[in-house]
Design a protein around this nucleic acid. Structure first.
Length: 985
DNA sequence: GCTCTGCTTAGAGGA
């Protein structure tokens, strides 16, 4: 049997995870179908339990091999899930949003598609209105100010925010109409506040019917509800028990007055805007409205209401297992039974927040008693029970700790962190946090700057508090940019960081492909008058897109030959000729030919740029020429840093740029080109100004993935330049091409970006040249004269080495440190240095030790740690090296994979090849000659290769390398390290 | 066999 989630750790208890072993459908005594499951929660699969699904649950599509979570009572070894009691959650570790579940009732495919492909559900102006209104309401309730003037002011502010203006641009809306539409709702906000907040006596509050299951009284007593304060905005709830996730518009503290009794509760508050329709979602809304029995309800539904816990309309037979009713019920239970009798103040917010989360995640713990009563479990004597509970708790804790350590070992998590320093607020929704280990140093981790993370508390109740990314990580501190401010938690709170699972973005590439295949028959839909103009404009844009699709299909799928116009005079504007001529002056002949070809192209041009051929310069010149000719240009590349590389070179020329997309490290010289900075400096606060910016003759620069930006919904360009095109997958590379008449792809199908060349580097280059370019690569510049690596304290190091071993008697040491020796290969054949194969990958401890030893010697000799780079093809080896570095006080030396070193260089590069075995095992990784080519072309001054020659010889590319190393007189040779020298380590 | 980059996210409303 194949398990659906083989990594799931099966367990009992609150977070139980069962593996389904067998499923059978049987008829019970009443003649109704039941599904009987044989399940197990033991890793060894030996202890079997039974689960019976009745009523609607019978249609749950559960199969052998599935992982399920059960809620209810399984104490007897048999779980019974029916319409009254219990839940089965299929794939509980896939968290599904409430919206997706709601939309799945109408159309399952639709829900799955919109969860997978964002673009399948395009933005509408109603959504924009809804978003703005939500923000107005949230601001108003957190400031506790619902006066008409204040609401008006808030609406104005929010309306002017750049992200909303961008959406207006995308949708081609009239800003006055949007604003008016927003304002129409404001009185209902004020009314809501009047009804539910700020009243002097409880009798003034709107009456509503609430059934509070918590007090066990009859379900229809009338009570007054009073919203006291707002505790949180957009609080996220993740429940790995119910398999649900979502966000709460506003978390509020309310007082419920019934007769003489008053109860304080924390409740979620959900806001709905828009018109009433007969949809399931709106029917639910209507239900709620009825429950509130608000006699003065306006024609529109109430603008806001409490989504109270008791609300769970049952909608039967529309969805197996989990209907919206169930979702609501689930959420309801989550929020249930949490009454606190005294009113809580703002100072208690931290505690409240914590409590809050507890409520979200541990409803069943609170309900434990109730459930046992309901199922009639005979209670053992109390002390026994207490002991058992204690034991269970300890067991659970131990298990968690074990899991935690397992996670940390895998390198995808860092636990036991405490907050240090103050939280720095960057802007709304961005807070800079610093964390340190409570005890000891950071563990060895895969986490790197830029990685997306989920931040949780170590207590399970504080699960998934916030998300964000790693800004910086070193041996003692990890700095994260998070979407929530965690200073509300006590200083002693222990946190953990988990790497967010890769969100494989299939949306853009598949979206691009489907766009490529779109039919050219643009359809005009019927529309009302007020919508006519924007819709018309959208369709015009749409039909242009479709023309581009047709053309791209011809070129890319049908391989139509690209066309060129015969004469430059027809493309070069008269007044640009001089400028263009002067720009061309600085170029060599092939570069000038490339420029000409691009200018003459009607479809596309391909530019192959081998390392060192001045690819970036060529692109810059091209951009300058196109700009001078008055063409609009879209400039894209594979990575943010590659985009910025080009912009950095162009920054000295008088060219305007619009740099789109969020980069974590923006160069100060490029900062002024970012959209964010432009909008700030020009204080763009109206759609008119934004439209002016977007339509100006700025060169738009972004990554290939950045094409969902609003600007592309309304603009096309004369030229699109794609840098590093050979590194980008075709479906992604396709994206920007839809927005331009002509495109230029620049890249090297053999290799990667160029490097700074000098004499040593050129020798280094000869390696690469022989291996992959068959001698076609030439050194592009002779200007760099400082030939050798500078090691000011080398004498001291030499002395130290003499102390351990006779330096002059060991040619390998000379080979390594001799400045005039740019390349050497250290053969570990005789050491020996065998590889280790583990679940995390391949590593080689001896090689790692040698690398760290050599690195420390270079640093002692006076080399700057930042000038040294360590490369290994395997992640596991990086971990081992990093771990050794942490304990060797060598300082920050960059250790990375070959792939990550693409397009970059260092003065000294040490490569650990790792593979060393006698059985002839080969990995795929080193068979790719392009990877080897990258590894050996990253060094500017010194390249030290380390590995076991006989093992590596089995890889054809490496064999070629050894052949070359042996034959090349100018560079160093294969050097054997003798085992007695390992004493150094 | 073990490697990489790009994406904020759920929900914003309608049907």
């Amino acid at each position: 049997m194949e398990a659906s989630f083989p990594k799931t750790i099966l367990s009992h208890g609150m977070d139980n995870r069962y593996l389904v072993l067998a499923v059978s459908t049987v008829l019970n005594e009443e003649g109704n179908s039941e599904k009987h499951l044989i399940i197990t929660a033991s890793q060894s699969l030996e202890y079997e339990e039974q689960c019976i699904l009745r009523n609607d649950w019978c249609t749950t599509p559960v199969e052998p091999g599935d992982i399920i979570h059960l809620e209810g009572d399984g104490t007897s070894g048999t779980w019974i899930i029916d319409e009254d009691f219990g839940y089965l959650i299929l794939y509980p570790d896939i968290l599904i949003s409430g919206t997706s579940i709601a939309s799945s009732i109408r159309c399952m495919r639709r829900a799955v598609l919109s969860e997978t492909f964002r673009s399948s559900d395009p933005a509408t102006h109603q959504m924009l209105i809804g978003t703005i209104l939500h923000e107005v309401f949230q601001k108003a309730i957190s400031n506790n100010s619902f006066t008409p003037e204040k609401l008006q002011e808030l609406a104005c502010q929010i309306f002017q925010e750049i992200r909303h203006l961008k959406e207006m641009y995308r949708l081609n809306l009239n800003p006055d109409e949007v604003k008016q539409e927003v304002e129409e709702y404001l009185p209902s906000f004020a009314k809501w506040a009047g009804d539910f907040m700020h009243k002097s006596t409880s009798a003034d509050f709107s009456q509503m019917q609430l059934s509070l299951s918590s007090d066990g009284s009859n379900n229809n007593s009338t009570c007054n509800i009073e919203v006291i304060n707002s505790l949180d905005i957009e609080e996220s709830i993740w429940s790995p028990r119910f398999g649900l996730k979502g966000k709460i518009d506003v978390t509020v503290g309310v007082k419920i007055h019934r007769g003489s009794k008053t109860k304080y509760k924390i409740m979620p508050l959900e806001l709905k805007t828009g018109k009433v329709s007969n949809s399931i979602e709106h029917r639910s809304q209507g239900e709620t409205k009825k429950k509130f029995k608000d006699p003065s309800a306006p024609q529109r539904p109430p603008s806001a209401f409490l989504f109270c816990s008791e609300y769970h309309p049952k909608i039967k037979g529309e969805h197996p297992g989990l209907s919206i009713g169930d979702v609501a019920k689930t959420l309801g239970e989550i929020w249930n039974d949490t009454a606190a009798d005294d009113k809580q103040t703002h100072e208690k917010k931290a505690a409240e927040l914590k409590e809050n989360t507890k409520r979200i995640l541990l409803p069943m713990e609170l309900k434990e008693n109730q459930m046992q009563q309901k199922t009639g479990v005979v209670k053992a004597d109390k002390s026994k029970k207490r002991k058992r509970r204690k034991r269970m708790r300890r067991k659970r804790k131990m298990k968690r700790k074990k899991m935690m350590m397992y996670m940390e070992e895998s390198g995808n998590c860092i636990g036991n962190l405490i907050r240090t320093e103050h939280v720095k607020r960057v802007c709304d929704g961005q807070y800079l946090h610093n964390f340190q280990r409570k005890k000891g140093a950071m563990p060895v981790t895969n986490l790197m700057a830029g990685d997306r993370i989920i931040l949780s508390g170590e207590e399970r109740t504080l699960f998934a508090l916030s998300r964000g990314y790693v800004k910086e990580i070193n041996m003692t501190t990890v700095t994260c940019l998070l979407d929530r401010n965690l200073s509300v938690f006590a200083e002693s709170t222990l946190f953990r960081i988990d790497q967010e699972e890769k969100n494989c973005d299939i949306d853009t590439p598949l979206g691009n492909l489907s766009k490529l295949m779109e039919n050219t028959n643009a359809r005009f839909v019927t529309m009302n008058k007020s919508e006519f103009l924007p819709t018309f404009l959208r369709n015009i844009t749409k039909s242009m897109d479709l023309l581009f699709s047709k053309k791209l299909r011809d070129l890319i799928i049908d391989f139509r030959e690209p066309q060129f116009i015969p004469y430059l005079s027809s493309v070069l504007p008269h007044d640009a000729k001089d400028t263009v001529a002067s720009i061309l002056k600085g170029l060599n002949k092939p570069q000038r030919q490339a420029m000409k070809k691009v200018l003459l192209s009607k479809d596309y041009t391909l530019i192959v740029g081998m390392p060192g051929t001045g690819k970036t310069t060529t692109i810059c010149t091209l951009v300058r020429i196109l700009y001078a000719c008055g063409f609009s240009v879209l400039l894209t590349s594979y990575t943010h840093s590659a985009v910025d590389n080009i912009l950095l070179k162009l920054a000295k020329f008088q060219i305007g740029f619009l740099r789109l997309g969020q980069t974590q490290k923006v160069h100060p010289d490029i900062q002024k080109f970012t959209e964010e900075e432009i909008c700030r400096s020009k204080s763009i606060k109206s759609l008119a100004l934004l439209e002016e910016l977007y339509s100006s003759q700025l060169i738009v620069a972004t990554t290939c993935m950045g094409i969902s930006h609003p600007v592309f919904s309304r603009r096309t360009f004369d030229f699109c330049i794609v840098d590093e095109a050979s590194q980008i997958s075709q479906p992604v590379c396709l994206g920007p091409l839809f927005f331009a008449q002509r495109f230029v792809l620049v890249g090297d199908h053999q290799q990667l970006p160029p490097l700074v060349l000098n004499r040593e580097a050129s020798k280094i280059m000869s390696l690469s040249n022989k291996l992959t370019y068959e001698g076609k690569l030439e050194c592009g510049s002779e200007k760099v004269a400082n030939a050798v690596i500078n090691l000011p304290n080398f004498k001291d190091v030499k002395l130290e080495l003499e102390f351990y071993a006779d330096y002059s008697d060991n040619p390998w040491l000379i080979g390594v440190f001799e400045p005039n020796n740019p390349v050497c290969f250290l053969n570990t054949e005789k050491v020996p240095a065998p590889e280790q194969v583990e679940k995390g990958g391949v590593s080689n401890v001896t090689e790692a030790k040698l690398i760290v030893f050599l690195t420390s010697m270079f640093i002692k000799a006076g080399c700057n740690p930042s000038d040294i780079g360590i490369i290994a093809p395997y992640r596991q080896q990086l971990k081992v090296i990093n771990n050794l570095l942490v304990h060797s006080f060598v300082g920050m030396v960059e250790v990375n994979t070959v792939d990550k070193y693409q397009g970059r260089d260092k003065r000294i590069i040490l490569v650990s090849f790792v593979r060393s075995n006698k059985d002839g095992t080969l990995g795929e990784l080193l068979k790719d000659w392009r990877r080897l080519n990258v590894a050996i072309t990253r060094a500017k001054h010194k390249l030290i290769l380390l590995g076991c020659v006989p093992s590596l010889k089995r890889y054809p590319p490496l064999e070629k390398l050894f052949c070359h190393l042996n034959s090349e007189k100018l560079i160093s040779f294969l050097l054997c390290i003798w085992s007695h020298l390992i004493v150094l380590l």
